[in-house]
Design a protein around this nucleic acid. Structure first.
Lengths: 101, 101
DNA sequence: CACATACATAGATATTTGTCAATATAAAAG
DNA sequence: CTTTTATATTGACAAATATCTATGTATGTG
């Protein structure tokens, strides 16, 4: 896995289908064919989305036989969570008197 | 503010410039002109990005005089954080024997 | 009022993205 | 070896997106 990147991960989560895939994976590891059943997209489209999710590090891909088992990568989730935690507004500067005071 | 939507928020965070804007706002409320100084984009482009960030609920917009003061919306951040927490893999089903067992 | 500053809107454009159909690859089954 | 199943790749295309220039609007200033 490459280095985790907040923007890439968020971009991956910014698609309704991929978000749904991630939700399904939160219930446990699943293979592609099973994921495909739940969507009204074609197999190549799912394959494309899975590549996006794997490439950004959000999803792990375990190959066994002819199946690919996908699962969430906890490291990526905690990485994103840490980023959010760091976003807490430390000291809001109430700019009441002028520009950016 | 409309209802918070994970995909919309993530899509907003999935752009390098907007992510940088959000990081800047984590340091406290700032006006548009100040944000603009830090980027090599034009003012209309910044305006467009701010609209994206405000529309998804991630950023608040407080108008005072001719300035717009932008700040992070803590509710949106905790909303996203809650979503991430719910993604914790509850019971990984090790599918060692076949498809999705 | 005329001008400057901060921001928004409109229109254009190049790039990215989500999607599909067609095809290829890989592995298991018969 | 042939067929089936699971997944990937390729090429095409429409829609969305990021960006710009030009212009409009709103607010404050001289």
């Amino acid at each position: 896995m490459n280095e985790l990147d907040v923007a890439l991960i968020c971009k991956a989560l910014g698609d309704a289908n991929r978000l749904e895939i991630v939700k399904m994976l939160s219930d446990g590891e699943k293979c592609g064919c099973r994921l495909l059943e739940r969507f009204s997209i074609t197999q190549p489209t799912l394959s494309h989305h899975m590549k996006t999710l794997v490439d950004c590090g959000l999803v792990n891909d375990r190959k066994q036989g002819k199946w690919h088992y996908y699962s969430l990568n906890p490291e990526a989730l905690s990485f994103l969570r840490t980023f959010l935690d760091e976003l807490v507004c430390k000291e809001p500067t109430e700019g009441k008197g002028g520009c950016c005071q």
